[in-house]
Amino acid sequence: MPPSLEGPRRGQPRRNQTGPENASNAPPTQPIDPNITATIHQIMSEMLPSLVAQTVEALRQSDDGEDPNLVNQPSETQGQGTDTGGNSQEIHLWLERFHKQKPRVFILAATPVDAEDWIIHLEKIFRVLGCPDHIRVELAIYKLEGDAYCWWHVWKQAHTGVVDIGSLTWEEFKELFYQQYFSNSDKDAYGREYATIRQRDDESISDYMARFLRLASYAGIIAGIASYQTEKFKWSLNGKYRSKLINQNFTTVAQVVDAARNIERERLDTIQFKGDKDKKRKHDGSSGSFNRFKSDNSDKRRFGGSKFSGSSQSITSSNPSVTTPPIVCKECNLPHRPSPCLRMTGSCFNCGQRGHLANWIKSKLDKACPDYS
């Protein structure tokens, strides 16, 4: 019986056609170029943050009841910004980068200097991140809190329809901010202070330099060129520094500061050395008084309770406000008041009179001190 030409019956598994006899019909395989693989990975890594941000924003919009398809459509004011944040995706990305720099919030300014310091702090972050102009305004408004945000809210309500708040530039925002927290009258006051600036007695060189340079920045063209500022800084120093620098020539304020700091360090070292020396002298004096007290007591015991130690007490009793401690005499090697030594003058060691001696001193004179007991 001839073989059947029909195919495999229904229900029977088809035989594998990839055996050795059909190996020649398989398509050839080629290795993938590693450069192409690296390029694909790089493109995907760059697109992944954007895709994640778009997905998160779409989910947020859907939760709010908005159409997620409108999230990625460019708005008419994209690139200009609006008062409510402009393009939400762009603001979201810039806000994330901005928060990583840990910017300070602004609530109120105790002094006008605090307001300017906050603006300078934000501009440093904006310059590093490369923020566009309209994004700077949005991020600065985001960091206003308390009284500062109330001021901005009131100003925005008062100028709605009069000023295009959505197209407000960074320079315009700074001008509005300074009108509120750093007015022209404040700048004029700092300029007048710069004109009559002097270093205070309790002000260090570093503190005075910081105050001088800050006031010079407020004074503007009134501060003068570098050589004028150098001379003004030198002549406005305290007399204890100016007297040593007056005949020296400097070209910059930094040179004057460096020389004045050396004088300041020398003065501090001298004061510290004198303080240590005075402490040592007091310590030596207290220990010396204790030793003299022991010597006086030993002398009393030695001479049988004589009135020898009363020589120093007589000075105190005559003038209670003045107390002169006894010193050890180089002639008799005994402590007595600062007066001519009685042994050298031939006077009595008890009463100080001449013509007799104390009976506890061996002498050829027969007359003893009548005050001795």
Rank of each mutant, 00 (worst) to 15 (best):
S4Q: 09
E6G: 08
P8V: 15
T18W: 15
Q30A: 10
T37Y: 04
T37E: 13
A38Y: 02
I40T: 08
I40K: 13
M47H: 09
V52R: 15
V52T: 11
A53V: 06
A53N: 07
T55C: 04
V56A: 11
L59W: 03
S62F: 07
D67E: 07
P68C: 03
Q73F: 08
P74T: 05
E76V: 07
E76H: 06
Q78W: 07
D83M: 12
D83W: 15
T84Y: 09
T84I: 05
T84P: 00
G85F: 06
Q89H: 05
I91G: 01
L95M: 12
E96M: 06
F98Y: 15
H99K: 15
Q101A: 14
F106W: 05
A110M: 08
D114Q: 12
I119V: 15
H121D: 08
F126M: 02
V128F: 06
P132V: 03
D133S: 07
R136C: 14
G146K: 04
C150W: 12
W151C: 08
W152C: 04
H153W: 13
V154H: 14
H159E: 11
G161A: 06
I165K: 06
T169H: 02
W170L: 02
F177Y: 09
Q179D: 15
K187M: 04
D188K: 07
D188M: 10
A189R: 13
A189Y: 04
Y190P: 01
R192S: 09
R198M: 02
R198N: 04
D202H: 06
S204T: 03
I205S: 00
D207E: 05
M209I: 00
R211E: 01
L213W: 01
R214K: 07
L215F: 06
I221K: 13
I221L: 12
A223P: 04
G224H: 02
T230A: 06
T230W: 01
L237D: 00
L237I: 01
N238H: 02
K240G: 00
K240D: 01
S243W: 03
L245T: 01
V253I: 13
A254I: 03
Q255S: 11
V257N: 00
V257W: 00
N262L: 13
E264M: 02
E264F: 01
R265F: 04
D269N: 14
D269P: 01
T270I: 11
T270N: 09
I271Q: 11
Q272M: 09
D284K: 11
D284F: 09
S286T: 14
S286E: 15
S287A: 14
G288Y: 10
N291A: 15
F293Q: 13
K294L: 14
S295M: 13
D299E: 11
D299K: 10
G305C: 02
G305E: 08
S306P: 02
S311C: 11
S314E: 10
I315V: 11
S317M: 12
S318M: 11
S318G: 08
S318I: 05
P320E: 05
V322A: 04
V322T: 13
P325V: 03
P325A: 10
P326L: 01
I327W: 03
K330G: 06
C332A: 04
S339V: 13
M344C: 10
T345M: 12
T345L: 14
R354P: 01
N359K: 14
W360G: 01
S363Y: 02
L365K: 14
L365R: 11
A368F: 07
